[in-house]
Every structure is written in structure tokens, then in C-alpha cells.
């Protein structure tokens, strides 16, 4: 049996196992789905030339056992709560700092804008004064 074919079939079976688990999480006692998966795996274990592959079947069974063994693990309740509290405190602190920085930036921007406006005012006043002086001379 070609190596690529075996790799493809094993990956396909793993995807089926995961999909089956996901569905079983939603529909318990779905015998039809279990039969369907079994049939699909049986057909996968036949190579394109029609021969049945014992090696592939044993790898299928091993994959099933792995899926069953590696079940989700829940962290302890007090750890969950403490970590959440730590993260929220850090996030709130950072949020407050960011708001402070933003208001500080706004203050600097406003001051800079005020300075530029007054500078422009001085420039315009000086220009008008020069124009008046020139007009008075002639």
C-alpha cells in the first residue's frame, strides 16, 4: 500500500473520529452515526487494489484509543477564579492607564494647538503692523 495513501487515510480517520466525538457531544446514543463511522473506516482499510490491510486496521484502533484516552481536563475551581481575578485586575489597571495616557495626550495636543494659534496670531498682528507702517510712510 502506498505511503501517501496510508497517510491520507489515517488523517481522514482522525478527522472522522473528531467529528464523531463532536456530534456525540451533541447527540447522545446516536447508534446510526457510530455504525456509519465504522462502515467508513472499514471501507478506508481496503486499499485501492481491494486488499484489506491489517496494519492500517491496527493503527485505526490505536487512534480510537488515543481519542478516548486524551479527554478534556478541567482546572481546579480556585485556580480558575484566582487567575481570572488576576487577569481582570491587570486588564482594568492597563485600561485605566491607557485612558490616563489618552487624556494626557489630549492635554498636550490642546496646549500645542493653543500655542500654534497664538503664534499665528502674533504673526498676523506683526504683518498688519508692518503694513500700517509702510502705508504711513507713503
Amino acid at each position: 500500500m502506498a505511503k501517501n495513501y496510508i497517510e491520507d487515510v489515517l488523517s481522514l480517520q482522525a478527522d472522522q473520529l473528531i467529528a464523531e466525538q463532536e456530534t456525540q457531544n451533541h447527540l447522545t446514543g446516536n447508534e446510526t452515526l457510530a455504525d456509519e463511522t465504522r462502515d467508513r473506516q472499514l471501507s478506508l482499510s481496503h486499499s485501492p487494489d481491494g486488499s484489506h490491510n491489517e496494519e492500517l486496521v491496527s493503527l485505526f484502533n490505536l487512534a480510537k484509543k488515543i481519542r478516548f484516552t486524551l479527554s478534556p481536563v478541567s482546572p481546579m475551581g480556585n485556580f480558575q477564579a484566582k487567575l481570572k481575578q488576576d487577569l481582570l485586575t491587570k486588564a482594568r489597571l492597563r485600561h485605566a492607564e491607557q485612558e490616563q495616557v489618552a487624556s494626557h495626550d489630549l492635554l498636550i495636543f490642546t496646549a500645542l494647538l493653543g500655542f500654534l494659534v497664538s503664534l499665528a496670531g502674533l504673526f498676523v498682528a506683526k504683518k498688519r503692523w508692518r503694513e500700517q507702517v509702510t502705508f504711513a510712510l507713503f
Binding site: 478534556p72 482546572p75 487567575l83 482594568r92
Partner: peptide
């Protein structure tokens, strides 16, 4: 930007990451 939304995201992924 919202600490409470981060808390919900944490709840969503905690068990997956921990496992």
C-alpha cells in the same frame, strides 16, 4: 479594550489551554 470581554474570552479558552 474591554476587561470584561477579556474575561469572557478567558472562560472560552481556559479548559482547552489547560488540557
Amino acid at each position: 479594550s474591554d476587561p470584561e470581554a477579556f474575561g469572557r474570552l478567558y472562560q472560552l479558552y481556559l479548559e482547552k489551554v489547560y488540557t
